[in-house]
Nucleic acid binder design. Structure first.
Lengths: 271, 271
DNA sequence: TGTTACGGTGAACAGCGTTCACCAGCTTCC
DNA sequence: GGAAGCTGGTGAACGCTGTTCACCGTAACA
C-alpha cells in the first residue's frame, strides 16, 4: 500500500517518468473490479455501437480494457452472456393487474412495451428470438402475460397459444424492422458503425423499395404493386398496431359478446 | 465413404500402370463437375445431418470431396449459399387460384404448407428468419399470397399487414418447434448428430417441462401451472392450427358479414 | 505444338469462442 | 515479520470459422 493506491480523492499523480506503469495501465484499477453486471453493460455498449455480428467476447473485453479470458470468470460462455442481456431487458418492467374490462388495452400496452424494449438496443430482436422466455427470472412476466389473457375470459387453449402468438409477433416484427434499418444504413455492404437510434438517411430505402415494386410488370404483380406503399412504409408504429389489432380481434372472437367496446370500430370500409 | 466417385456402374479402368494419376485420385472425376446446384444439395445434406451451427463451408466442401476454395467459384459467400437454400425451398411450390369463397381454407392450406416446407429441413426456420422474401425468385409467391388476402375482400392496409403477420407466425412457430426438438435431443449439451425427422425420445422433454411448471409455487404462478399442459405439448400440429385460427378470425372480422361459414364454430365454451 | 482458359488446390489471413498455465497483489494466519 | 493461500487478472495457445490468392494440372482450341 506504500506507493500504489492511497485511495485519496486526488488521483495519485502517476509519476509519468515511471516507465513501468503506463504500459499496463493499472492492473487493478481499484475502481469497479469487473463484476458480471459490468460485463453485461459493456456488451450492450458494443452491441449498440457495432451490432450483433461484431459483438465478440474480444470486443467486450476491449471495451472494458481487459483480456478475453477475464470475462469467463463472470460469464460462462458467450451464449450465457447473450441470455443475460436478454433477461436484463425485462428487469424493472412491470405488468398491471389484469382488468377483464380493459383486456384489449392492456394487451396492446403490453405488446407496445415489448416492442419498445426490443427497439431499445440494436439487434435485440435477433437475440430475443434465440431464447425461450422460460428462464427463472422471466417466468413472472410470462405468468402475468398469461394472466391478462386468461382473466379476459379466453379459453385456456386459446390463451396458451395467444401467448406464443403475440410474443412471436413482437419479436418477428421488430426483427423485420431491424433488417430494413440495417439494409438502409449500408446500401453497399459497409460496416455500419452507427449507434442504435434513428438514422438520418432512413427513408432512402423505402423510396428505393417502392420504386422497385413499381417497376414490376403490372399484370404479373398487381397485388404487390398495389400494396407496396403499405408494406414498406416509414411509420412502423402504425403497421405494428394494425397487425396487433388483427390478433386482438381474433382473440375477441372467442369471447362471449360481452366485448364492451364496439367490436366494429374502424370497420372494413377504411380503404 | 464417398471419395472414390461411385457413380458409374463400372469405373473406367484407369490404366493402373499409369503412375501419375492415382496419387491425386482423379482431379476431375469426369462426373458431376461441381455445379452450383450440387453445392446447395451438399449444403442441405450437411444441414440435415449436423444442424445449422455446424454447417460450415469446410463441411460442405468435405461432403463434396473438394477444397473450400472450390466452392467460391459457384457461390459468392456463405450468406449467398444460405439464401440459395432458402429460395430452393420454394421451388416447385404452387399456390392455387384465389377463390374468394374459400379464402379461409386456402390461407390455412398455404400456412400449413409453409410450415411443412420449413420442417422439411433441419434448422430451416432459423435460416428463413434471416432473409426477407423479396428476392426475385420469391416474388411470385408473395404476389400469390397477397392475392389470396386481397381477393378475399380484405382492406389493403389489412392485407398488407396480414402477409407479414402470417409469414412471421409460420417462421416463429417452426423456430420454436425446432428449439424444443433440439433441446430434447441433447439434454446435457451434446453434439446431436441426428437427422431431421422425428426423434424417438421426443416426449421426454415435454414431461420434464410439465414437471417443472408443476413444481412452481401454486399461488405465484397459477396461470402458468394451469396452461403448462397446453403450452408444452407433443401435438404441434394442433397448436399451429389454433394460433392460425386466431389470426384467421381476426382477418374475418374485417370482412362484411358475408363470411360464408359459421364464424362461431367451436365457440368460446370449449374449456 | 503452343497457348489459353477453366476449375480445382493448398496455403494463408484475420478473427472467433474457449481453455489453461501462470502470476501479481491482497488477505490471513502462524 | 514472514509464509501460505486466495482472488482476479494475464497471455498464449487450440481448433475452428469465412474468405482470398498464387499456383497448377488438365482440356480444348488455334
Amino acid at each position: 500500500m506504500s506507493d500504489a493506491a492511497p485511495g485519496t480523492p486526488a488521483t495519485p499523480p502517476p509519476s509519468p517518468w515511471d516507465r513501468r506503469r503506463p504500459a499496463r495501465a493499472r492492473l487493478t484499477p481499484a475502481r469497479t473490479p469487473l463484476s458480471r453486471e459490468r460485463v453485461v453493460e459493456a456488451a450492450f455498449t458494443v452491441l449498440d455501437r457495432q451490432g450483433l455480428d461484431k459483438l465478440s467476447m474480444r470486443q467486450v473485453a476491449a471495451e472494458l480494457g481487459v483480456t478475453v479470458s477475464a470475462l469467463y470468470a463472470h460469464v460462462r460462455s458467450k451464449d450465457d452472456l447473450l441470455e443475460l442481456m436478454y433477461a436484463r431487458l425485462y428487469e424493472g418492467a412491470a405488468i398491471p393487474e389484469p382488468d377483464p374490462e380493459r383486456w384489449r388495452e392492456q394487451l396492446r400496452d403490453y405488446a407496445r412495451a415489448g416492442r419498445k424494449r426490443l427497439l431499445s438496443h440494436r439487434d435485440m430482436a435477433r437475440i430475443s428470438m434465440g431464447y425461450a422466455p422460460f428462464t427463472a427470472e422471466l417466468l413472472p412476466h410470462v405468468e402475468a402475460f398469461l394472466g391478462l389473457l386468461r382473466t379476459a375470459g379466453l379459453p385456456d387453449r386459446i390463451a396458451a397459444e395467444a401467448g406464443d402468438l403475440i410474443s412471436t409477433y413482437i419479436d418477428g416484427f421488430v426483427l423485420g424492422e431491424g433488417m430494413w434499418r440495417e439494409r438502409a444504413a449500408r446500401p453497399d455492404g459497409e460496416d455500419a458503425e452507427s449507434p442504435g437510434p434513428a438514422r438520418p438517411d432512413w427513408n432512402g430505402i423505402t423510396a428505393e423499395m417502392q420504386d422497385y415494386f413499381a417497376s414490376l410488370p403490372a399484370d404479373d404483380f398487381p397485388h404487390l404493386r398495389a400494396l407496396a406503399g403499405l408494406m414498406v412504409t416509414d411509420s412502423a408504429d402504425e403497421r405494428f398496431d394494425i397487425g396487433l389489432e388483427i390478433i386482438l380481434r381474433g382473440l375477441a372472437s372467442y369471447l362471449p359478446d360481452t366485448a364492451a367496446d364496439g367490436p366494429k370500430t374502424g370497420g372494413p370500409g377504411q380503404d
